[in-house]
Design a protein around this nucleic acid. Structure first.
Length: 176
DNA sequence: ACGATGATGAAC
DNA sequence: TTCATCATCGTA
């Protein structure tokens, strides 16, 4: 089957489009001599500085700086004293948006996912690719719109009702 | 329903 | 420098 590594062109588009199209793509992690690939089944879009659920709504800080970077850059942050969250920066450089990878076929939940794939803050601000040992492949799998469920993002009530209720979370209804 | 566990950012 | 909060998860 055809197998194409997604580059910055894929990620340099509207965040909602990228988040939806990442469903069915394969997250590939190469660390040491082992390589794992997992089909992405759940994502969330954080659409820019105006999005009150996005870290970037705080403006440029040490933590959010990476979100202003080039599309396809890895944004990993540490939360709840235990878990790393994996995001991919989207849209034009200078526009602070990203997609959170929330789950794959075998790993449910963003914290479990990163733990299982050995993803931590050392990957932060690095580009997806062979160099970093983390990239995403299109393996030609077709995802029908009818198989995609849209829902509010998880754990963002602090953003207020307008932003917390937006259906910026994308899930595959059936896994196979 | 809640505790583990530490970085973050806002307030002081 | 303190303090509440947090893009979570397992146990209850």
């Amino acid at each position: 089957m055809a197998r194409k590594r997604l580059n910055s062109t894929f990620f340099n588009r509207k965040t909602l489009i990228v988040a939806e199209e990442l469903l069915g793509k394969y997250l590939v992690r190469k660390s040491g001599d082992q390589i794992l690939s997992e089909m992405i089944t759940e994502t969330e879009a954080y659409t820019g500085g105006h999005d009150l659920a996005s870290h970037s709504s705080k403006g440029r800080t040490k933590r959010t700086e990476v979100m202003f970077g080039k599309a396809g850059t890895i944004y990993v942050y540490f939360v709840y004293g235990m878990y790393y969250m994996l995001n991919i920066v989207t849209e034009e450089t200078g526009y602070p948006s990203a997609v959170l990878i929330r789950g794959t076929q075998n790993f449910k939940g963003p914290g479990i996912l990163t733990r299982s794939l050995n993803i931590d803050a050392t990957l932060n601000n690095k580009p997806l690719g062979k160099q970093s040992g983390l990239w995403i492949e299109d393996r030609g799998k077709i995802i029908l719109k009818s198989k995609i469920k849209k829902a509010p993002r998880v754990g963002v009530s602090y953003a207020g009702p307008i932003w917390a209720n937006k259906k910026y979370r994308f899930l595959l209804k059936e896994l196979h």
